[in-house]
């Protein structure tokens, strides 16, 4: 194995940052699941809240994208 300690740290850091993507997946699942639970209790109100659903998913997913971005930066840009 070749490489230096900085590269090791870089790759480990990228891998750790990728955990954030999984965390965002949990968040998105939470949003969608709670929306579905609410929608099943009150289906008539569900249609008017799909915009809110997408905004919530977008916010949750943006943070996962941030961590993905950190991983990419560590891999390719630092």
């Amino acid at each position: 194995m070749e490489g230096d300690i900085a590269q090791l740290g870089q790759f480990i850091g990228a891998g750790l940052a990728a955990i954030g993507s999984g965390a965002a997946a949990i968040g998105v699942g939470h949003v969608a699941g709670n929306f579905l639970a609410g929608a099943l209790r009150n289906p008539s109100a569900a249609a008017s809240q799909t915009a809110t659903l997408f905004i919530g998913i977008a916010f949750a997913e943006a943070l996962g994208i941030f961590s993905f971005l950190v991983a990419l930066l560590l891999m390719f840009a630092v």
Binding site: E61, A62, I65, F66, L72
Partner: peptide, 16 residues
């Protein structure tokens, strides 16, 4: 920031 990175990051992530 989040507005732009959300869009760019999503598209970039998918393609990558």
């Amino acid at each position: 920031v989040s507005h732009s990175i959300r869009l760019g990051g999503n598209i970039m992530a998918g393609h990558a």
